[in-house]
Structures are given as structure tokens and as C-alpha cells.
Design a protein around this nucleic acid. Structure first.
Length: 195
DNA sequence: TAGAGGATTGAT
DNA sequence: TCAATCCTCTAC
């Protein structure tokens, strides 16, 4: 079952980041489906410095963060990697959840081909890697997540005790906000990004 | 319009 | 520990 817009348009981005663990993200490109279970996420809000939209600063890049929840925010990081976020909350409340790691479910062969490797190990364990494995790039920026080529589905049930909350990665510049425990992952899951 | 740097990754 | 790599943002 596809996750509906109302799920993403709720106010609490941290809660949504937690609840996304266990759900499935899928793409269909040239008729070929690849998908994976979300095992690691991070929350971002206009209220804190780690966020591109901190203090409601809108730029050409982060414009879609100000749209209604349920669309994709994809941007290029370090000139090399596409990072995939799900925009949440109502319009003009710029919040999003970064998807950091997946556990492959469907289309493994195609993922291996895209990653130019023969081992499934760690193939989607990292925000830059999972976009490449699923074929997500900036052409998906602003796309509605209920469409036929990029969507979120219900997945596995996750127990609260299996969710670990820690600080986010790569936002040292955010000062005190870098200490927020807004990164979530499934305990003991082999597909979580290393760090 | 130039210059700096980044929500990363993989090799050394 | 460091380079790859290029787009975005800021300041001039």
C-alpha cells in the first residue's frame, strides 16, 4: 500500500523520520522496478542550523522544501552525489527527512549494475549510494511521491525498542544544533551506513 | 562574476 | 587522511 500525503504533511518531522523506518522506497525507471526498506533517516527543519532552509531562507536549490509534504527534494552534494529527501509538513513549513540507508528488496541485479559491483554488501548503505542504486537523480526533484515512478510503500513493522536515535552526520557547521539526536536507524541492521 | 565550500564516498 | 567534482551561495 502506498503511503499517502497525509502521512508526510503532519507537523512533527522528527516523528515522521522515525516512522519512515521499515517503509519501502521504490522507483520504476524504463519499466524496471528497484526498491528497498528504509533503515536509516535524518530529520531537518527550518528551525535549526543543519537545514538548508534554516530561518526560512529560500533559494533556487531548496525551493521544493517549502512545498507541501509528500514531494521529493533531491540535490547534488559535493559535486558528486545526489541526496534524496522527502519533504514534510504543510507548505511554507520547510522540513524534510533525508533517507540515508536502505536494505535492498527488489531489482538487486539492476542495482548491482548501476553500482558497478557484484556484491550486494553495503550497496545502499549511504545517502549518495542509495540514490545511485535506485536511479534517483535531480530530475526527480520536486516530484510527487505518489507517482508511478517514485513512491513510498508500507513495509515491515518496526518495534520502538529497535530504533536508535543519535546525532546527525556531516553537519559540524550547525553548532549546537549538530547535537540534536535527529538521526534514526534500526538497531543491528547490517545495511545502516557506517560511521 | 569570482571564490569558497558542501546533509559523501572510496582509495591511500 | 585526502582527493574527486560541480553546483550553489555569498560577497564584491
Amino acid at each position: 500500500m502506498i503511503v499517502s500525503k497525509s502521512f508526510f504533511q503532519r507537523k512533527n518531522v522528527v516523528q515522521i523520520a522515525k516512522e519512515l523506518l521499515g517503509k519501502t522506497i521504490a522507483t520504476e525507471i524504463y519499466g524496471q522496478v528497484t526498491s528497498g526498506i528504509i533503515v536509516e533517516t535524518e530529520a531537518y527543519s527550518f528551525r535549526e542550523r543543519g537545514c538548508h532552509a534554516y530561518q526560512n531562507r529560500m533559494t533556487e536549490r531548496n525551493r521544493v522544501m517549502f512545498e507541501e509534504g509528500g514531494v521529493a527534494y533531491v540535490y547534488l552534494c559535493y559535486g558528486i552525489h545526489n541526496l534524496f529527501n522527502i519533504v514534510t509538513n504543510k507548505s511554507d513549513k520547510a522540513e524534510a527527512v533525508l533517507i540515508r540507508s536502505l536494505q535492498p528488496v527488489q531489482g538487486e541485479d539492476l542495482m548491482l549494475e548501476r553500482m558497478r559491483t557484484t556484491s550486494l554488501k553495503r550497496i545502499t548503505s549511504g545517502p549518495g549510494k542509495l540514490t545511485k542504486a535506485l536511479g534517483i537523480d535531480r530530475t526527480h526533484n520536486g516530484k510527487d511521491l505518489m507517482t508511478s515512478d517514485l513512491w513510498i510503500e508500507e513495509g515491515i513493522r518496526v518495534a520502538k525498542k529497535d530504533i536508535v536515535a543519535v546525532t546527525r552526520i556531516g553537519i559540524d557547521y550547525a553548532g549546537e544544533d549538530a547535537k540534536l539526536p535527529w538521526r534514526f536507524y534500526l538497531n543491528d541492521n547490517a545495511w545502516v551506513s557506517k560511521h
